[in-house]
Write a protein that binds this DNA or RNA. Structure first.
Lengths: 243, 243
DNA sequence: GAGTGGTCTAGACCACCCC
DNA sequence: GGGTGGTCTAGACCACTCT
């Protein structure tokens, strides 16, 4: 089982990785499911277990799959306790990492603005859902989010269902629409609060806020969400590891 | 070559990884040097090449070693073109990633304040160097840094040598003191510029700034630098990938 | 051609989980 | 006990770099 033409050589484990990713995109295995064992996959793809292992290792390193010794390999899910807070890099300076309270301010539809259009790779005139919400740490307003989701991918997004959902927002999207976020790119600036922000976040107008712009991607590096978060950082910080 | 006691089992490749790290700490190989080949290391440690390979893979994933096919495995260095900007997560919104100009404002010695003491794991009363500098993008002030370094580790830190150093600050520390930064933890807030910041950064007093606090670590996860950067983000952003 | 890292395989055995 | 992932090994061969 080898055809290693020299120009544009692609390792087998890389091809296996792509095949597994395609099964994930196709929904062959859903978040939380176990995928077939390494031996089964090796048989299916006609490669050795070691090659499958290397492909799975790569996907596990990207938090797309989760290995559990003795049990199997599972599709990462936002409803797993471990993952609910993975994308929330802001946390209170003191006190434990309680899950923040979420208050939805509005859910509307609109044509995507130019920025969203470009970043989510949408065709001109595309419709999006716009969700505005307020996150609170220990009851105090902390983050004001504006979230843009393409209507085509999130058909029938329902405000009342969303409100009543327990757990993280991405957990809701995963359960309701079968779309799992696997990574995001963020750009952060410091801005001054305008009158609207100030009132909602209980700060003075002109107060410094973190402005976190995010594009989130699902399987196959497909961008599916844009959001802007405005964050009061008097009692919390954006935490990051640089490697 | 195996002694796999059940309780507190430690894989061989993990032990090899520690041995390699210890050689790095001991300075057996310097940044930019090639380390011995996988086969040589396998012989030295009495394990198979595959086990050495896995240890090196882990260190390469942490940017401590750099593999180059056909040539060897090298100790990562801050003077390598690739790495000079690795820890600088702020970059201009438009224009290419030019290396920012650096202007040193002052270099002093002092007793470490409580915060630095605690974060760098120093004993009470320890002396530090305090370096204040201004980074500029395209000639415009962008980041005001205050850097704390333990005097004990950076003996004879020389202002004029530092000023004349070409390349990154960490490249200077590596070349001059043999201390290589391998990772850092950052905490980010939005703050308002005070009078001093405002003048140096050419902004209005009260203007929003990013405040980036960093602890940087060298081999063996030893904290050796604390710094605070205040950044004007009108024309640049802190960029981060969340995975 | 010699030496390096990179891929792939096959097999043995260990650690963990659950029935 | 049987299944799963995890470790370790030995060997064959490929891709890349330099001489």
């Amino acid at each position: 089982m080898k055809t290693l033409a020299s120009p544009s050589f692609r390792p087998l484990y890389d091809q296996i990785k792509i095949l597994i990713t395609q099964s994930l995109i196709a929904g062959e295995w859903r978040p939380g499911d176990a995928i077939p064992s390494e031996i089964e996959l090796a048989n299916r793809f006609h490669v050795s277990q070691g090659t499958v292992r290397k492909a799975i290792d790569a996907l596990a390193a990207e938090n797309i799959l989760v290995r559990r010794q003795g049990k199997g390999t599972f599709v990462a899910s936002h409803s797993q306790e471990r993952a609910t807070t993975r994308f929330l890099r802001v946390s209170p300076d003191s006190a434990s990492g309680e899950f923040p309270g979420s208050e939805f301010l509005s859910v509307t539809r609109a044509r995507a603005p130019e920025l969203t259009l470009r970043l989510l790779d949408l065709r001109a005139g595309a419709s999006i859902h716009i969700i505005r919400r307020l996150l609170k740490f220990a009851g105090k307003p902390a983050i004001l989010d504006e979230i843009h989701l393409p209507s085509s991918l999130f058909k029938g997004l329902d405000e009342s269902v969303m409100r009543s959902h327990k757990g993280s927002f991405y957990g809701y999207l995963e359960g309701q629409f079968g779309i799992t976020m696997i990574r995001a790119e963020e750009r952060i600036k410091a801005v001054a609060a305008d009158a609207v922000h100030a009132e909602l976040l209980h700060v003075q107008q002109g107060a410094p806020l973190l402005c976190v712009d995010r594009v989130a991607y699902t399987y196959g590096d497909r961008p599916v969400e844009w959001r802007r978060g405005l964050c009061v950082t008097e009692e919390c910080s954006y935490i990051n590891e640089v490697t």
